[in-house]
Each structure stands twice: as structure tokens, then as C-alpha cells.
Design a binder for these strands. Structure first.
Lengths: 185, 185
DNA sequence: ACTAGAATATATCACTCTGATATATGCTAT
DNA sequence: ATAGCATATATCAGAGTGATATATTCTAGT
């Protein structure tokens, strides 16, 4: 799924500017699925217009910088439908939190406890955000998607709350001689 | 977490070649946490050696290409410990499957059903792989990590099995006039 | 016995993406 | 006042991806 397809997906939900597309991936319905940056969105939109998959309408705004609002074209809808039927790439996860947890014995315990607190809060915030969506008029598959998110985040938060006590028996590297001394054999 | 830190983490678990490091991210304990490619691992290892964070021993093998086995140094351990105490970047997830599910009403239902079958199988395979790990001698935090994975993948597989029937009521785009016609308003 | 393909092993490269920065304006809270 | 946040687009160095090249051995099918 390249940035162009991601943008087409958002435009399929409604006309939007580059800035608004970014927000969908940051706080909107797609925020737990994919991430993108302006550096990929703006070039992607330019190429979509070049290829006739989207059209751009410049909207002069008073009191705000001008907006470029993009709309998907019939050709764009066809391209999106085709992309959705490609074999999906396997999920790509990059989690600093899980990496740190895997090597948690190398980290002072208070730091680890703080990270777990933050993680549980993040799960709770995310769940609140999902529940705030009005999914009643969503398609069945989008509702399946939302329910999967709810299920997974709920299970993760509960697991951490119920099992974090396991860390109590873990030795923490002493900071007396700095972290280097603590992890040296 | 850049590629250098990821490599240091694997080397902390034991000496390894670039090829073996890749396998840890592909099939090993870190396979659901992070992904990397040879294009990032080999340059990262070269820089680790340059910076004195790892040393390289060339092992001529008969019947196989030569191996370059890398070992973490005390300075490398210190660098890893320091990196683990940085503020973790938020999780970065890129899931073609979830993106397609979100736009599932644009895709023929048999295709969607097949994707869900594959997804459930993938969860089951992953769970089997986690259970195959001998976690008894792992640190408490690594066990917490493994348990979190087990919990999340189990919950996801069960949710999909129990709720996929929701798709039965969903209209599928007819393919008579190609996908473009089906999604045109 | 032959052969196609997978596994082991390192390396490179065009392309894409990230994260930071630049630019400009208005709104809001201290 | 003024610092900081939100809106809005754009660019770019550096990092990473996915494919490809090279070379050998092992394995499975015909």
C-alpha cells in the first residue's frame, strides 16, 4: 500500500486537503492502521492529479492559508478498487515499547513501570476514541474492523493491568556505576 | 529505534551474522515487534564496528559462503542500555489487511472471506510459534512481552471467528462491469 | 540421474518514506 | 504582550525498503 493508495482511500470517504488527510491518519479512523507524513502525502497528491485519479480545487480562504481540496475521480475509484484486491503485504509493526519490554532487564524498573502506565493509558485513550466514532452507518466490514480494534486494545490493556506484577521479582540494573556497569557481565 | 539499536539488541542475545539477525526479525522472538531488511542491517553492522560497539570475526566455512560473526562490546552494551531509556516512539503499524477491511464494501465478498481465512490462520500460526519458545528462562519482562502477544493474537483470532458472519449482510460489488462500475456512484 | 527451487551468506541500489524544518497567519491562554 | 498551538503547504537530508546480483549446497520431485 503506497501513499497514493492511502490518499485515494481517504478521498473515497470524502473530499479533503493534504492537511486533512494527515489528520485522518493521526486522529481519525485510520490512525491505528497506517501512518504517513506530509513528505509522502503532498507528492502522492500531485501524482494522483497528474495521473487523473484525483482533481484539485484551490480554495482561497480569508484568514487562513489557501486550501487545495482534492476529490477522487471515477478512474481513481477504479484504481482504489484494484489496489484493494492485490495480495496484502504482511502487517508491518515497529514498536519501541515492545522492544524495550523484551530487553526490560537492562532498564531500571521505575522507568519500565512508567512506560507500562503510559501504555495502559494509551490503550484506554485509543478505546475511548474508537467508541466516540459513530459506527452505526458504517459498512459491515468497517464495523468488523472497529470491533477488532476494540477487542485487541481491551485485551492488551487488561493483560498488562493483571500481569504487570510479574516485574516485581525482576532484578533492576543498579545505577550506581551508570547503565554500562549494570549490564556488563 | 534505528537499525543499529535493533542489531545491538539481537547481539545482546548472542553473537550473530547479518543473515542470522535478519532471521530473528523474520521468524524469531522479535518477529512481531520490528522488521528490517538486509539493506539496513549490513550498513548498520558496518557502522557498529566503526564506532566500536561491535566486533566482527570472519569465519571461513567450507561448503558455505564465509560468515561474518558479530559480537557486542561493553561500549555496545552501554549504547543499547542508553537507547532503551530514550522515550519510545509511538507504535508504527502498517496493515494492508486492516486497510482493505476498512474499505471492504469495495471488494468482492469471496476475496474478503479468503483474506479473513488467511488472517485467522496467520494468528494461529503465530500463536503456535510463540508457544514453541522456551520462555521459562526468560526475564520477567520478556515473559510479560510474550504473554501480551499470546493474549492479543488469541483475542483477535477469536473475534474474527465469532464475528465474521457480520459480512453476510454486506452488499458485494458486482463484477459484471468491472470493479470501477461497482464503486461508481 | 537430473533439475528446479529453497537455504545459506553478503552486498548494492533506485526508489520511497520519515522527521525535521521553513514559511505564513490567526487564535487562545497566561 | 507574547508564547504557543492550529491551520496550511512545501522541501530535503538521511534512513529504510524491496528487489536484484552473486555464489554454493542441500532437498525434493520427476
Amino acid at each position: 500500500m503506497d501513499a497514493r493508495t492511502l490518499c485515494l482511500g481517504v478521498l473515497q470517504l470524502g473530499d479533503a486537503s493534504g492537511y486533512e488527510i494527515k489528520k485522518v491518519f493521526e486522529e481519525g479512523v485510520l490512525s491505528h492502521i497506517y501512518e504517513t507524513s506530509f513528505g509522502s502525502i503532498y507528492p502522492a497528491l500531485n501524482r494522483l492529479v497528474e495521473d487523473g485519479l484525483a482533481i484539485c480545487t484551490e480554495m482561497p480562504q480569508d484568514k487562513r492559508p489557501d486550501k487545495k481540496v482534492y476529490s477522487i475521480t471515477p478512474a481513481g475509484r477504479a484504481a482504489l478498487a484494484a489496489a484493494l484486491q492485490q495480495v496484502p503485504a504482511p502487517d508491518r509493526i515497529r514498536s519501541d515499547f515492545l522492544f524495550i519490554l523484551m530487553f526490560g532487564h537492562l532498564v531500571p524498573r521505575p522507568h519500565l513501570e512508567r512506560l507500562i502506565d503510559q501504555r495502559i493509558n494509551w490503550y484506554r485513550d485509543t478505546l475511548a476514541r474508537i467508541d466516540k466514532c459513530d459506527t452505526a452507518n458504517w459498512s459491515a466490514s468497517a464495523q468488523l474492523f472497529a470491533g477488532l480494534g476494540r477487542t485487541v486494545f481491551t485485551a492488551a490493556a487488561e493483560y498488562l493491568e493483571q500481569n504487570r506484577h510479574l516485574l516485581e521479582q525482576q532484578e533492576s540494573p543498579t545505577d550506581r556505576n551508570g547503565p554500562a556497569a549494570a549490564v556488563a557481565e
